[in-house]
Amino acid sequence: MNDERQISDAEFLAARGGRVRHYLSLYAALWRNSVIRELGFKVNFLMWIVVEALWFALQLTFIGVLYLHTDHIGTWTKWQVVALMGTSHLIQQLFTALFLTNLTALSEHIRTGKLDFMLLLPVNTRFLISFRQVDLGGFVNAASALCVIGYALHRLGHTPGIAQFAGFAVLVVVGILIHYSLMLMLSATSFWTVRAQGIVWGYYNLFNIARLPDEAFRGPFKAVFTYALPMLLVSNVPVKLLVDKLGSPLEILLLVTLAVLICVASEIVWRTALKRYTSASS
């Protein structure tokens, strides 16, 4: 009896392991696909990296010019803000690499009825619409963001401990998860309206707020972008952890709690939206 149960447990684990392995191999295939696609347009691929690098440099110039005229924004010093810009860029670029193209494409899939074919495939549909394409340039840009963060830490003369680095990495992942879940919810509105693409791009523009120090903001603006759309948390909290600026560990708790809530909400919205789907064509 006892033996039997152990066996079934083991079987269950093996089956689940098999599923995870299955999805990992699927994802590997999607990656290969993306690499091949990018290799077809090498010059264009490099040009886009130049564009992103240029815009990043532009933001850093802005900070450089601001700090010609002041030595602090709230309590944030120049190199702390540079680290913040770097982190914001890191999160944004990783998000772009993994998810952006996929999520903005959802409304097209719905409009054209392409989603039908995805629903028919023997794969979790949310997995497919989230991971179909990888934008490799994003990883290159993320690497440049890491360099900027490293240089900023050097200028701050600050060497974070291992725990800080690990916590930073985890919070960056949490940040990407928040963006991903929020954007999935917004793209899912295309099940109701065809205008969703505009909303999604509107949200993407809000990333720009994330690179600014939270202390600058007050009132309802701060409340909305902290608790509803936590732009002012996603990159501020990891940087504060990294440079010993955290007011209290509660900030981390808030960020993680919000991430969990938003993830759960996105799954609910996704399922509700799918139920509404009634194909577009024919």
Binding site: H69, I73, G74, N205, L206, L212, E215, A216, F217, F221
Partner: peptide
């Protein structure tokens, strides 16, 4: 477009406060 604009104005206000 007014949201990033508001953010920029907030940052300048904070700089002027200092």
């Amino acid at each position: 477009g007014l949201i990033p604009l508001t953010a920029t104005i907030f940052v300048w206000r904070t700089i002027y406060a200092g």
